[in-house]
Amino acid sequence: MPPTSARADAQRARVLAASVEIFGTRGYRATSMNEIAAGVGLSKPTLYHYFRNKEELLVRIYSDVLDESLRMAQETVDAAATPFDGLHDLLVSRVVHTCENRELLKICFEEEDELRPDLSEELIVRRRLFEDVAVSALRRHLDEHPEVRLAMAPKVFVNMCLGAVNWTYKWYRPTGPRTAAELGREMADALLAVLVPPA
């Protein structure tokens, strides 16, 4: 009896979760489909019913992360009282998300070269949609405060900020003195200080 849609979706979610754990531990290239099947308690033929190969798994992981990131970014910016608050809240949320999903983000940041160029380009386009949410908020802030001067283009500034907050997956420790939210607020305050209009 073939799995129902709900059962199939639940099984795919289990496979993806196991893949994230195994890719994060062993690396994408060193992981086999046999290991993933064993990790989720499926036979290899059954696993191929849900995902045809490792690359499809990796693409799905990237796609899910990008979709969720874009949704969170748009909701965060839309809910903020001002464009500055939206950009600030967005950076805080990225720190929290990155610190709470370090294994997942490690794969996204370190395994991208394993994708075929055509698939990689598609994901880059989707990543730019996320960046555009932040760039749009920044430009609205600058339009409202012409007295604020940036020493670089808005897109460069946004990518500098995103690079800083994304890198927390490398060094954040949950046992440290700050929660992810506290760290996020400190980082956002520091990165965006140059955008605060002079008194």
Results as ranks from 00 to 15, higher is better:
137 A>D: 03
84 F>S: 06
126 R>D: 04
74 Q>I: 06
47 L>H: 07
41 G>P: 04
21 E>R: 14
95 V>H: 01
118 D>P: 08
107 I>M: 10
103 E>V: 15
90 L>R: 04
109 F>A: 12
101 N>K: 00
15 V>M: 09
36 I>V: 11
92 V>P: 04
16 L>T: 04
104 L>D: 12
68 E>V: 01
5 S>R: 11
77 V>P: 03
48 Y>K: 07
43 S>Y: 12
108 C>H: 06
117 P>I: 02
144 E>A: 15
59 V>L: 05
146 P>Y: 00
51 F>T: 11
47 L>D: 03
61 I>Q: 02
131 E>T: 13
31 T>A: 02
139 R>D: 13
123 L>I: 06
103 E>N: 15
12 R>T: 06
104 L>N: 03
42 L>F: 11
89 D>A: 13
20 V>M: 04
127 R>W: 08
33 M>D: 05
9 D>F: 00
91 L>N: 01
97 H>Q: 14
127 R>S: 14
94 R>K: 12
145 H>M: 04
143 D>P: 04
97 H>T: 14
19 S>E: 10
64 D>Y: 01
7 R>K: 14
126 R>C: 04
69 S>D: 07
62 Y>F: 14
49 H>Y: 11
123 L>R: 02
53 N>R: 05
32 S>N: 02
122 E>D: 10
132 D>L: 00
88 H>P: 10
90 L>Y: 06
103 E>P: 15
76 T>K: 01
55 E>Y: 11
71 R>N: 07
127 R>I: 08
5 S>H: 11
130 F>C: 13
130 F>W: 11
36 I>P: 13
55 E>G: 11
31 T>N: 06
36 I>K: 03
144 E>K: 07
99 C>H: 01
111 E>D: 12
112 E>W: 13
129 L>A: 12
71 R>A: 04
109 F>K: 11
2 P>Y: 10
7 R>C: 08
79 A>T: 00
115 L>Q: 09
41 G>S: 10
48 Y>C: 01
13 A>Q: 14
127 R>E: 09
145 H>P: 02
